[in-house]
């Protein structure tokens, strides 16, 4: 099938605006600031800070997670903005092993309600339901 062409890894300006708007309106978020082109600092209502790398990588796998990690001193999460995007199990595992949450945007919105491991391991209600049914692939 014709899945071709160049896929822009950096989020488009409208995606960044969407991210700023959606996260800024989250009820657990007090403030969101764009620190760098792809780095955002979220201050939660409980005072905790969350550093997020925003990307538009179509499929985030282990290699991309390592690349992103190596470009920052510290981050708490990687979010691949478009709902057309996805990530691999190995990408998720590498991120988790480094105490980083790897999320699609809808997952990240849910994860912001939690802290620590609950944040990193967050699953959407649909994913939890799928997990119960024993389906291997949640992504």
């Amino acid at each position: 099938m014709p899945e071709g062409g160049r896929y822009e890894k950096r989020p488009r300006p409208e995606s960044i605006q969407y991210f700023l708007g959606a996260i800024g309106r989250h009820n657990k978020v007090r403030k969101i600031e764009q620190v760098e082109e792809q780095l955002f600092k979220i201050t939660k209502t409980n005072g905790r800070k969350v550093l997020v790398h925003l990307t538009n990588i179509y499929t985030v796998s282990e290699a991309e997670v390592i690349e992103i990690m190596s470009s920052h001193n510290h981050i708490d999460a990687i979010v691949t903005i478009s709902t057309w995007n996805s990530y691999s199990v190995s990408g998720k595992d590498v991120a988790k092993a480094n105490k980083i949450g790897l999320f699609l945007i809808d997952e990240f919105m849910g994860a912001l309600n939690f802290e620590g491991n609950q944040f990193i391991n967050y699953l959407t209600p649909y994913q939890r339901e799928q997990l119960k049914k024993g389906k291997r692939s949640l992504f």
């Binding site: 409208e14 995606s15 478009s82 709902t83 057309w84």
Partner: peptide, 30 residues
């Protein structure tokens, strides 16, 4: 090929919808 192309253009990651918004039900349909 035509059928695949139609679906790709209508719902895919390069569709007009995908170009304009990062979040859409079209992504799930895709």
């Amino acid at each position: 090929f035509s059928e695949n192309e139609r679906i790709f253009k209508q719902y895919g990651p390069f569709s007009i919808t995908a170009q304009h918004t990062p979040v859409s039900e079209f992504a799930y349909m895709w």
